[in-house]
Design a binder for these strands. Sequence first.
DNA 1: CTAGTTGCAAAGAGTTTGCATGGCG
DNA 2: CGCCATGCAAACTCTTTGCAACTAG
Lengths: 141, 141
Amino acid sequence: MAAYVTKQRRILQSFLEDHPDESLSAADIAKGLTDQSISVSAVYRNLAALEEEGKVRRVSRSGGREIYYQYTDTESCRSHLHLLCKSCGATYHMDKADADQLMQSLYNHEKFALDTVDTVLYGTCEACQIRERMKNKHEKA
Amino acid sequence: MAAYVTKQRRILQSFLEDHPDESLSAADIAKGLTDQSISVSAVYRNLAALEEEGKVRRVSRSGGREIYYQYTDTESCRSHLHLLCKSCGATYHMDKADADQLMQSLYNHEKFALDTVDTVLYGTCEACQIRERMKNKHEKA
DNA sequence: CTAGTTGCAAAGAGTTTGCATGGCG
DNA sequence: CGCCATGCAAACTCTTTGCAACTAG
């Protein structure tokens, strides 16, 4: 699958490493990589490869209208539930105990087996809540 | 927005009413409506209108690769967290108390304000878990 | 050397849109 | 009657693919 470590792959991966846990669209990535020698097709192909390797996670917002790629360096990530801020696109890890409790209650009450890889919880992170509160205040004034 | 109640709109809505809480792709819907007088564009346009009205919810699976529409008759739905079975596509409502507790812990521990409209929890429902267990048993045998 | 990878451009899938016609109220 | 919605086909966006040239190992 990832037999060769090509120049293009290194370019992409190093770009992603500079933006860990951010939500990047394919266009964002392509834009960040203009003037570096990598083609759009290579971006897509390597993104797909990295996704299979588990280093890149594909998420979507607003029911699939927007698609983002997120690079995650750490290995520990796969078992965590992820929180995605709709405002800034940053990803957070949910507290392990909370996640376990959620899975327990889901299983106990609805017999639903939660998939931690596919599930992403959307909302607003603390920084963005504050920012939005300030914006609202200004608008009202 | 939904000024006129046209024949096509009635066709679509009645089809959706026959498939409540199911995950239907645009193609599924179009297929189910061939030989009825409604065009693809009308399907898309009315789907978008129904979504704005809150009667249809757009969800996606596998990071936006697949997009589904779900019809929800009830009004009470908007405040619920939804569980989506990756296997059969059915939607379930999460127990209100569990949802509240989840939102509380998220807020207390990571100051994260969960958005119940955008968030969908993926996993496997009870029926599909049983079905998959049986399948595995047969494959091993 | 030889198989995986690249770039390009063409092909595809899925969805949206412009415009003339038709239908709801 | 006037405005909204429809159907059709063309346009669009995003992504994938075929193929010859290239390059890592």
